[in-house]
């Protein structure tokens, strides 16, 4: 708690600076794509949010495992704190993606594997948060949501393959990869990476804030319980 309190200001400032630089750079000072025109600018919000949306899920998987194995309370609370952020990022990625699709594919929605997987992920985030809200005893809630998260992770992988089997995609592959050959060109890439780093730090900031809130809330309930007894 003390460490997170000390780190929080730095992380949040880094997030704001990176986001401001990256977004302004991306919006005002990048050229249009020769095929997509100005609509390529959507990449600066869509890709970072989508990228984080998946990785938040992964983070929840890891923290759930830590809770089940080591019974580390902060770990469970971090997973709880991360879920709504993941849901919002997923929703934002879906909306921005739909608007992007409306210009480049000519349709807002297509039952494409990538899109479908994101929709499933969004539903999962909601169900996960709802389960947290429905169980009163904190340890039990942590147990059950962790189990759900693990089952969900297995089925997320299954769904991914299942959806691929079911429909041919129109969504392009990863626009970022470590081998430079396939990457989008530098003029798009640099501001994009800046925004991605910014969104990552923003997630860290939110995660810290929300986890601290959860810890405080837990302390409040503990104190109140002691007061009554």
């Amino acid at each position: 708690m003390r460490l997170s309190g000390r780190v929080l200001p730095y992380v949040s400032v880094i997030a704001v600076v990176l986001l401001a630089v990256g977004l302004i750079w991306g919006f005002f000072f990048t050229p249009d794509d020769f095929r997509q025109g100005a609509s390529v600018k959507i990449i600066y919000v869509h890709v970072p949010l989508a990228f984080l949306a998946i990785n938040i899920y992964f983070m929840m998987f890891v923290t759930s495992l830590i809770w089940l194995i080591r019974r580390h309370h902060v770990s469970a609370l971090a997973a709880k704190a991360a879920a709504p952020i993941g849901a919002v990022f997923t929703l934002a990625a879906l909306i921005s993606g739909a608007l992007w699709g409306s210009t480049t594919w000519g349709t807002y929605w297509q039952w494409d594997p990538t899109l479908t997987s994101f929709l499933i992920m969004f539903i999962f985030y909601i169900g996960y948060s709802a389960l947290w809200g429905a169980v009163d005893e904190p340890d039990k809630a942590a147990d059950l949501t962790s189990i759900l998260c693990l089952i969900g992770s297995v089925f997320a992988v299954l769904s991914r393959y299942a959806v691929n089997f079911w429909s041919q995609g129109i969504h392009q592959g990863a626009s970022l990869s470590l081998d430079k050959e396939e990457n989008v060109s530098d003029v798009f890439w640099l501001p994009l990476v800046t925004v991605m780093a910014g969104v990552f730090f923003l997630f860290l900031t939110l995660l810290l804030i929300r986890t601290r809130t959860e810890i405080r809330n837990r302390r409040i309930t503990a104190l109140q319980a002691r007061e009554i007894s």
């Binding site: 025109g37 100005a38 869509h46 929703l91 923003l202």
Partner: peptide
């Protein structure tokens, strides 16, 4: 200063607006 968005204005501004709005909301 404002970049020329042309016929993509709605989708670009819409996706930027909704994304930033949602993220701001959760923040």
């Amino acid at each position: 200063m404002m970049p020329e968005l042309g016929r993509y204005a709605f989708s670009v501004l819409g996706s930027w607006g909704s994304s930033i709005g949602l993220v701001l909301m959760i923040t």
